[in-house]
């Protein structure tokens, strides 16, 4: 039996490059804003820690995406 024709990739599936590309971009935006905030927020500002956490989480997400991309 021949392979069934593939549907256009449904949204939200990892491994689909278009989806992955968009996701990467969105996370890059989050990280970008975090970077800017970290440059502007004073060292002793308690809000700083929150931004650091956001930055950390987003960076982890992007690293996961990168690993995922490499294993595909």
């Amino acid at each position: 039996m021949s392979e069934p024709p593939r549907d256009p990739a449904p949204c939200g599936r990892l491994g689909d490059t278009e989806f992955e590309h968009t996701l990467r971009n969105q996370i890059a935006i989050v990280i970008g804003y975090c970077d800017l905030l970290l440059q502007e927020i004073r060292q002793d500002d308690p809000l700083r820690r929150d931004v650091v956490e956001m930055h950390k989480a987003a960076s982890t997400a992007i690293a996961m995406l990168r690993d995922q991309g490499e294993s595909v």
């Binding site: 971009n25 969105q26 970008g32 804003y33």
Partner: peptide, 12 residues
């Protein structure tokens, strides 16, 4: 093509 990215660049 990503408006969020453009806004970020503008902001910087």
């Amino acid at each position: 093509d990503e408006p969020g990215m453009l806004a970020l660049i503008q902001r910087f």
